[in-house]
Design a protein around this nucleic acid. Sequence first.
DNA 1: CAGCGCCCCTGCCCGC
DNA 2: TGCGGGCAGGGGCGCT
Length: 271
Amino acid sequence: MPELPEVVVTLKGLIPHITGKRVSKVVVREPRLRWPVPGDLSEQLCGKVLIDGRQRAKYLLFRFDHGHLMIHLGMSGNLRIVQAGTPPAKHDHVDISFEDGVQLRFTDPRRFGSVLWLSGKPEQHKLLIHLGPEPFDPVFDGNYLYRLSRGKTVSVKQFLMDNKIVVGVGNIYANESLFLSGIRPKKAAGRISRKIYEALSENAKTVLKRAIEQGGTTLKDFVGNEGKPGYFKQELYVYGRGGMPCLRCKTPLKEIRLGQRSTVYCVLCQK
DNA sequence: CAGCGCCCCTGCCCGC
DNA sequence: TGCGGGCAGGGGCGCT
């Protein structure tokens, strides 16, 4: 489910339910996630107050006065509020209960997600320290992409999806941004002009912002915290539409694989 | 260092 | 209806 918009939507929905509340109980049913859930998670959290929550890349960071709970949703993860006492279903790996009966539940069939405890500064953590800027950070613009791409032979799509360059642009939104910018996904990143990168950075921001407004993109089973699906799927131009007509020129969209990821583009609209 | 592949894992869809 | 193969929204890591 998650790309950046789904993470933002998830966080936004959770915040009002859990900020300022004290943890009363932690249950870990399955610690074998992307990295093992720390064995002392319960000791770290119980009795402590969750101060606030924010997002860095696709990581959710929940602040306590002595550290941070860091959660990544991977490909299939989901974090939601459940009624206290709701029996766990398959793949409900971690529950964090608060004193008022609110319960935070982490579910992840594929277990590519993670639930970690950070005692130090989050930005110093090895998973975050090498990350590029957020797409909505003012430093992320056409000039930034132009400068960092000089001499690079990697495809522009993989360049855009590289977390060291910019975070949060996953496969769906990379495909969409490139279509809107008229750029062929496999074109070498180093051979694209400053002007085109200007369009690409703007389109990436627009697509992400629009997806957040629509509550994310529901492909299979993503639902926000109010149980609503994301409506951005209706606005996808190319992702998931290989072989179907381009919405601008009717030419059948071409589908290839780039870095093992499905890549869809229009041979006429994207050069 | 850049640039690839691989891999973690389950679910689902398709073709036979 | 059952089974094998391929694919899926992520991303760290190890190899060349």
